[in-house]
Every structure is written in structure tokens, then in C-alpha cells.
């Protein structure tokens, strides 16, 4: 019984968090949705830049050893 109540508690917690997230994104004419889109685009670009940086570092290392 205690196990179920724990699960129930978690589910209700997630539901609460979910509605809080919803409230946030539906507020201010949904501008936060646009912000989230921009953040996703920029994050992926930044991730690509990090990958590129690492690849160039690897090439530099290979050249120096050779």
C-alpha cells in the first residue's frame, strides 16, 4: 500500500510540475514557445561548434605526433 502511495505521490508531483510548465509556456501570448525554439536552434549550433572544436584539436594532435 505504501509503495502505491509513493507512486501516486510522484505521479501527482509530475502532474503538478507539468501544469506549472504548461502555465509558463501559455503565458505572455506564448512568447516563451518562441524563446524555446530559438534556444533549441542555438544550442544545437553551439553543440556543433563544440564538436568541430574537438575535431580540429584531434587533427592538430595527429599532425604534431606525425
Amino acid at each position: 500500500m505504501r509503495k502505491y502511495s509513493l507512486i501516486l505521490m510522484f505521479v501527482s508531483l509530475f502532474a503538478m510540475a507539468d501544469s506549472a510548465v504548461n502555465d509558463f509556456f501559455y503565458s505572455s501570448g506564448k512568447i516563451y514557445v518562441v524563446i524555446a525554439v530559438l534556444v533549441i536552434i542555438f544550442s544545437l549550433l553551439a553543440y556543433y561548434l563544440v564538436r568541430l572544436d574537438k575535431k580540429i584539436t584531434q587533427v592538430e594532435k595527429d599532425r604534431n605526433e606525425a
Partner: peptide
């Protein structure tokens, strides 16, 4: 900083 600027500049 840029993510902060995207967020702050719009909201």
C-alpha cells in the same frame, strides 16, 4: 550568455 540574451531580450 547568448542563451540568456535570447531569453532576456524577448521576455
Amino acid at each position: 550568455l547568448i542563451i540568456y540574451a535570447i531569453f532576456g531580450g524577448l521576455s
